[in-house]
C-alpha cells in the first residue's frame, strides 16, 4: 500500500516523507535548446519533461483559408518515451489519452496567449516525456509555460498546474481525511486525485481534470489545496524566468 493509513495517522508523513501540503522538488531550466524559438526542461519530483516551441511561424496546411485564421493556431504534440515508465512501453501516436492531453494544453494556451497578434500563423509546442512519476499533465503544462516565455510569445499570465488528492478512498465519508498535494505514481493509482491549472496568482481555474471517484464534499478541500499549490509553482517558475533574464542582462555587453 503506498499510503498505509495506519502509519500515516501516526506521523502524518507520506511514504516519501512529505507532509500533506508539501510539493515535490520542482526544478526548471529555461532556454535549454538554443536552436528552438523557446525551450525548457522541467522536473516535478521524478517526472521529467522537455518542451520546445517553434513559432509563431507560417501556418501549415491550406494557407489562407483556415478556420479562425484571424489568430494563431496552437498545435501540441506529446511523445512519451518508452523508457519513461516502470515497464518499457511504446505508446502509439493515436492514443486517445494523449490526444486528450494535447487538446487540453492547446485549448488552455489558446486562451492564455495573445493569439490575435499573430494571424495566419502557427505556434507548435512539442513535448517529450522522459520519466513519469505522477503529475504528468501538470508537468507538461508547466514546461510549456516556461518554454513559451522563453520564446517571447506574449501571454496573459503564467499557467501553473499541479495535482491534489485525498487520503481516504471515495466510499468513506471521512471528514478528517486530509487533502494531499502533488501525488506521485503510486499515490495516483490508489487514491482519488485531480489535476488543476490556474492562471498565475488568481483563483481562476484554467484546467481541471479528475478521473477518479470522490465524495463531492471533499472536492472543495482538494481544489483549495491544488489552487494554492499552483501559486507556489508559479513562484518557482517566476524565479526561474527572472534568474534567466538577470543572467542575460548581466552577460550582455556594449
Amino acid at each position: 500500500m503506498p499510503l498505509d493509513t495506519s502509519t500515516y495517522s501516526l506521523a502524518l508523513l507520506r511514504l516519501d516523507g512529505r507532509r500533506w501540503n508539501e510539493l515535490r522538488r520542482l526544478t526548471a531550466q529555461i532556454s535549454t535548446q538554443v536552436a528552438a524559438d523557446g525551450s525548457s526542461y522541467l522536473e516535478m519530483g521524478n517526472t521529467k519533461v522537455m518542451c520546445t516551441v517553434a513559432g509563431p511561424s507560417e501556418a501549415k496546411g491550406a494557407g489562407g483559408v483556415r478556420l479562425g485564421n484571424d489568430r494563431a493556431d496552437i498545435r501540441v504534440s506529446i511523445s512519451i518515451a518508452g523508457f519513461s515508465g516502470v515497464d518499457r512501453k511504446k505508446s502509439g501516436r493515436n492514443d486517445k489519452r494523449l490526444m486528450e492531453m494535447q487538446h487540453t494544453i492547446a485549448s488552455a494556451f489558446a486562451q492564455n496567449l495573445f493569439t490575435k497578434l499573430y494571424p495566419h500563423s502557427t505556434i507548435s509546442l512539442s513535448i517529450h516525456v522522459l520519466s513519469q512519476d505522477g503529475s504528468l499533465l501538470a508537468a507538461c503544462i508547466n514546461a510549456c509555460t516556461i518554454a513559451l516565455i522563453d520564446a517571447g510569445v506574449p501571454m496573459h499570465d503564467y499557467i501553473c498546474a499541479c495535482t491534489a488528492g485525498s487520503t481516504s478512498s471515495y466510499s468513506s465519508n471521512d471528514e478528517t481525511a486530509d487533502p494531499l498535494l502533488d501525488l506521485n505514481t503510486m499515490e495516483e493509482q490508489e487514491l482519488p486525485f485531480l489535476t488543476v491549472a490556474t492562471m498565475g496568482e488568481s483563483d481562476s481555474v484554467s484546467v481541471l481534470i479528475m478521473e477518479t471517484k470522490v465524495q463531492v464534499g471533499r472536492l472543495e478541500g482538494m481544489l483549495a489545496v491544488g489552487v494554492d499549490g499552483c501559486k507556489q509553482v508559479r513562484a518557482i517558475l517566476d524565479g526561474v524566468a527572472r534568474a534567466r533574464g538577470t543572467k542575460m542582462l548581466e552577460g550582455s555587453r556594449m
Binding site: 494556451f109 481555474v205 472536492l219
Partner: peptide, 28 residues
Amino acid sequence: GINKDGELCQIAKLGGISVDAVAFLGCV
C-alpha cells in the same frame, strides 16, 4: 459526471477560458 448519491465520478475541464474556483464549486 456525478451520481445522485453525491459521488463525483469525473470532472473534465479541458482548457478553455478560466473560471473562478468558487464559481466552479457552485457548478458542481
